[in-house]
Amino acid sequence: MTDFDTGIGDLAERLVTATRTGDHDYVADVLAKLAADDPRTRASALLRDLVDTGAGMIRARTREDNDALYTFDVTTEHDEPVHVDIVPPAPRAALRALAASLNRDAVDRDIHAVLATRGTPDEVVTVLVQCLLWTLELRDTRTPAVRLNCF
């Protein structure tokens, strides 16, 4: 059985663990294979799983309010505002997929997951790494205020 014979949730957890433990060769190999697939159905599914996991961790830190609408402020490392349209397309789509997941909008999440994974193989690997890092950041911090890094 290979990693591609398992469910996306299991694969996502293996990738998160491998990223945390520094098994970068494994992570790079799996992500390169996902990015090389055409269509990128599994890459998109992995991104959806990662943003859903992140959304669940964010919601767990906040008071449950069914009428809440989650949004993001995009800033530089110096807390200067950044217009979201200058963020590269794949990370911007991943951030929008995360917002859609937070707001329980599966259709919008799916659309943005596909958009985030339709670039070049290098862009797909980069956005999946970004989502893996967001998952690690959210697991490692427990503060109510969420600050996600983007590279």
Rank of each mutant, 00 (worst) to 15 (best):
L115A: 06
A100Y: 03
A116N: 09
V107F: 06
A94K: 13
A90V: 09
A93M: 09
D108V: 03
A97N: 08
D122W: 01
A94I: 11
R92M: 04
V107E: 04
D105F: 11
A100P: 06
R104Q: 15
D110G: 15
V114C: 05
A99H: 15
T120G: 05
S101G: 14
R104H: 15
V114M: 11
L95I: 11
A100M: 04
L102F: 01
L95A: 13
N103S: 14
A94N: 13
N103K: 13
T117M: 00
T120W: 02
G119D: 14
L98M: 13
D110P: 09
A106R: 10
N103P: 10
N103W: 14
P91W: 09
H112W: 09
A113K: 07
A97Q: 10
T117C: 06
T117S: 00
N103T: 13
T120V: 00
N103A: 14
A100E: 01
A93I: 09
A116M: 06
L95W: 06
A100V: 04
R109V: 02
D110S: 15
T120Q: 00
D108T: 03
L102C: 01
V107H: 07
G119V: 10
T117W: 02
L95R: 05
A97R: 10
I111Q: 01
I111M: 03
A94T: 14
A106Q: 02
L98V: 11
A97W: 09
A99E: 14
R118K: 13
S101L: 13
L115F: 03
L95Q: 09
I111E: 02
V107N: 04
A100S: 14
A93E: 12
A100W: 05
D105P: 11
D110K: 08
A113R: 04
A106F: 01
R118H: 08
R118N: 12
A100D: 03
D110W: 03
A113H: 07
A116T: 08
D122I: 05
I111S: 05
A106I: 07
P121S: 03
A93R: 06
T117Y: 02
I111V: 06
S101V: 07
L98N: 06
A99W: 14
R96G: 05
L115Y: 05
I111P: 00
A94R: 12
A90L: 07
D108Q: 04
T120C: 01
V107G: 07
A106K: 08
H112F: 12
A116G: 10
D108M: 05
A113C: 12
A99R: 15
L102T: 00
T117V: 02
V107D: 09
A99V: 15
L115R: 12
R92Q: 03
D122F: 02
V114N: 08
R118F: 03
R118L: 05
S101A: 15
A113G: 05
D108H: 03
T120F: 00
D105E: 14
E123V: 06
R104I: 13
A97G: 12
H112D: 08
R104V: 15
D122M: 00
P121D: 02
E123S: 08
A113Q: 04
V114S: 07
S101C: 12
A90D: 10
R92F: 02
A99S: 15
A106D: 06
A94L: 13
R118W: 10
A113T: 11
R92V: 01
H112S: 07
